[in-house]
């Protein structure tokens, strides 16, 4: 039982899409840097799309929660994904390389920006990367990386370790790879 397709993907036939490609928006980071980006790339971020739709985007869009370095990275990602010729395979490869070189701190910045700007694909990719890094790491490493302080007493912690003692076997050393 097919329901009506409400979001046709056929971008190529849409004159509106053509317009979007030529129109550019300016994004302003928290430290005042300005970046130009085509509208078709910018609207991959649902948050920016909403702003554009609601006509809140008068000239410059300020993004007070994203710093310049992170915004530059996010824009690289958006441009690649808005590229016309890029096949899915290419994009996947790009995503892989895009996140592979990043340190944990950078990944956190990017995930925060992607979450704030609501860029689903990037969010998914970075989350996966962070999760991969966390596999088999010690509790101390996770606390340090996420800046979380334990609110358990040592006795409570000991008790919990005892409950699933086997899960503590074979944990990696705390080196960030």
């Amino acid at each position: 039982m097919a329901r009506k397709n409400r979001n046709p993907v056929g971008k190529n036939v849409d004159p509106e899409a053509q317009k979007k490609k030529t129109r550019t928006l300016t994004l302003k980071s928290s430290d005042g840097q300005e970046f130009s980006i085509s509208e078709s790339a910018a609207v991959l971020s649902i948050a920016i799309e909403n702003m554009v739709e609601d006509d809140c985007a008068g000239g410059v869009i300020p993004l007070p929660l994203v710093d310049g370095g992170t915004l530059a990275r996010v824009i690289t990602y958006l441009n690649k994904h808005a590229e016309d010729g890029a096949s899915d395979e290419e994009k996947r490869k790009f995503d892989e390389e895009f996140v592979s070189g990043m340190e944990m701190g950078v990944l956190f910045d990017v995930v925060l920006a992607a979450n704030y700007l609501d860029i689903r694909g990037l969010l998914r990719e970075v989350r996966r990367r962070i999760a991969d890094r966390m596999k088999n790491k010690s509790v101390e490493w996770v606390r340090k990386t996420f800046h979380i302080e334990s609110d358990f007493t040592p006795e409570e912690e000991e008790q919990m370790k005892k409950e699933f003692a086997w899960a503590w076997e074979g944990v990696d050393s705390d080196v960030d790879d």
């Binding site: 995930v111 925060l112 979450n115 969010l123 989350r127 996966r128 962070i130 999760a131 966390m134 596999k135 088999n136 790491k137 010690s138 509790v139 996770v142 606390r143 996420f146 979380i148 302080e149 334990s150 609110d151 358990f152 912690e157 919990m160 370790k161 699933f164 899960a167 503590w168 944990v171």
Partner: peptide, 21 residues
């Protein structure tokens, strides 16, 4: 975001991470 990251981890890691806080 934390939730989505944790959801991707294997059971064994999650049992340890219960101790984080």
């Amino acid at each position: 975001v934390i939730l989505e990251i944790l959801l991707r981890l294997p059971v064994k890691t999650l049992l340890q991470l219960k101790c984080v806080c």
